[in-house]
Simulated assay, not measured.
Amino acid sequence: MSVNSTTPPPRTSTFARPDGPLSRKNVLMAAALVLAGSLGVQVSSALASGLFSTFGTLGTSSLRFLVAALILLAIFRPKLRGRSRSNWLGIAIYGASMAAMNMCLYAAIERLPLGVAVTLEFLGPITVALLASRRITEALCAVGALAGVVLIAGPGGHFDLIGYAFGLGAALFFGLYTVFSARVGKTNDSMSGLALSVAFAAVLSLPFGIPVLHLVDLNSAGILLVSATIGVVLTFTADTLAARVSSSRVVGTLFSIDPVVGAVAGAVILGQSLTLTAVLGIVAVVGSGAALVWASGSNPPHVPER
Rank of each mutant, 00 (worst) to 15 (best):
A92Q: 04
I91H: 02
F76I: 00
R83V: 05
W88M: 02
P78L: 03
R83L: 14
W88L: 05
I93M: 03
A100Y: 04
G90F: 11
R83S: 09
G90E: 15
A99K: 15
R77W: 15
N102W: 07
N102E: 12
N102C: 05
R85C: 02
R83Y: 12
I91C: 03
G95C: 02
S84Y: 02
R77S: 13
W88R: 05
R85N: 05
A99W: 02
C104L: 12
K79L: 09
W88S: 00
Y94Q: 11
M103W: 15
G90S: 12
R83T: 06
A99T: 06
N102A: 11
G95F: 04
G90K: 11
G95W: 03
L105W: 13
G95D: 13
M98I: 13
S84P: 04
I91F: 01
M103C: 05
Y94F: 09
G95P: 01
L105E: 09
W88G: 00
W88V: 00
S97V: 01
L89R: 05
A96K: 06
A96M: 11
Y94S: 02
K79A: 13
K79S: 07
A96F: 14
I93Q: 09
G82T: 06
M98A: 15
I91Y: 04
L80P: 01
A96T: 13
L89K: 06
A92R: 03
P78G: 09
M101S: 14
R85L: 08
R81F: 08
G90H: 12
M103Q: 09
G95H: 01
A92P: 01
A99R: 01
C104S: 14
R77F: 11
R83D: 04
A99Y: 00
I93Y: 03
Y94N: 10
A96Y: 08
G90L: 01
A99V: 03
L80I: 09
K79T: 08
S97I: 03
F76Q: 06
A99D: 08
S86A: 11
L80W: 13
A96S: 15
N87W: 14
S84I: 04
S86D: 08
F76K: 02
W88N: 03
A100S: 15
A100L: 15
M101A: 03
